[in-house]
Design a protein around this nucleic acid. Structure first.
Length: 338
DNA sequence: TGTATTTGACCGAG
DNA sequence: CTCGGTCAAATACA
């Protein structure tokens, strides 16, 4: 299992590398192709190994050795287990530390808003625990670096459209807490909410607490299929119920694959398909009107390409379903509407 | 004119 | 009673 997880991260790293070099590849489509092939091969290996693991262990009582640590009896359960999650967190932290310096200098100066993986301040969480609310159990707290240029007052976008419905001074905090709900709350009964607050000791870092799951992205008539929000592996947050791999893997990855590749893709298409328009992934019908608070990504992400590659095998029992379990399943243990 | 944001009031958990 | 979370009227903005 460790091998599979490490393969997954290898693929993610390759995709990340591709992202980094994408702007330089627009004139060299053959290099891009070979890079995509490599990523595709890695994920194909993951798929094959997962299939083998499922056949070997998934329908038996005895878990594989690595699963025993998680105490689960299937691949999907193992992938959601704390053992698997620790590996995920470990890999992410290692990757994060490696890239942190560059991100700090480049990403921040560009007003990027990279999701930071940090431990929560112990004193702060202790303070919050002293008055724990009923629904705090399903809070997923992350820290996000604020842009240091431009408008530093707003937290970086996470792919969803939020509407602010309140702001409150919090006892013991220097900065007020902003309360946001999903713009589609009324239209699609989407219960997702988030709270955004600057850290006392670092005004360039937001602490973002997500509550509730987006139902707007699951509706066939939903106006958008935005990249999922970035709630972190909850193993490294303070107030969190048992974790699922699904939100972690599918939600955090787009954060580091966040460069503006629109131009790159269009450039590439202008070379390879002189008469063809760049394909667009329509992520939003701007039903919010002219004063919509955020803008939308209307071009494909590298992760989408990776998804496509990963899903290219036309198997009915796709192994992706084992890793990225459905939101419905996730919702079963989730928050009721409020 | 329609939509988003601001902000004081209110509610309810602890 | 305190304080975090939400509501809703007022205001801002395109």
């Amino acid at each position: 299992m460790e091998e599979i997880a490490s393969l997954i991260f290898k693929g993610c790293n390759l995709a990340n590398d591709l992202e980094q070099t994408l702007p330089n590849m627009t004139r060299e489509p053959h290099v891009l192709i070979s890079s995509c092939d490599e990523i595709s091969k890695v994920f194909a290996d993951v798929r094959d190994q997962l299939r083998m693991a499922v056949q070997e262990y998934g329908h038996h009582d005895k878990p594989p050795p690595a699963m025993e640590a998680g105490g689960s009896g299937s691949v999907s359960e193992w992938l959601r287990s704390s053992h698997a999650m620790n590996m995920v967190v470990h890999e992410q932290l290692a990757q994060h530390q490696q890239q942190r310096f560059d991100q700090a200098i480049v990403g921040q100066e560009l007003g990027g808003g990279n999701v930071e993986v940090m431990e929560l301040d112990a004193a702060h969480s202790l303070l919050q625990r002293t008055r724990r609310r009923k629904h705090e159990a399903d809070r997923r707290t992350i820290r996000v670096a604020a842009p240091r240029m431009g408008n530093t007052e707003v937290p970086p976008e996470d792919g969803y459209i939020w509407r602010k419905y309140g702001q409150k001074e919090i006892l013991g905090s220097k900065y007020p807490r902003g309360y946001f709900r999903c713009t589609h709350q009324k239209l699609y009964n989407c219960p997702a909410k988030k709270q955004v607050q600057r850290l006392d000791n670092d005004r360039y870092t937001f602490e973002v607490a997500y509550r509730g799951d987006h139902t707007c992205t699951m509706s066939a008539t939903a106006p958008s299929m935005p990249p999922p929000p970035p709630p972190l592996p909850e193993a490294i947050t303070t107030q969190s119920p048992p974790i699922h791999l699904a939100p972690t893997a599918s939600q955090s990855l787009p954060q580091w694959l966040s460069i503006d590749i629109k131009k790159s893709v269009e450039d590439l298409y202008s070379i390879t398909h002189p008469t063809m328009q760049p394909f667009r992934n329509q992520t939003n019908v701007n039903e919010a009107g002219p004063s919509s608070p955020t803008h939308y990504v209307d071009y494909p992400r590298v992760t989408d390409l990776a998804d496509t590659m990963f899903n290219s095998g036309s198997s009915s029992n796709n192994s992706m379903e084992l890793i990225f379990s459905s939101n419905e399943e996730k919702k079963d243990g989730g928050e009721n509407t409020n």
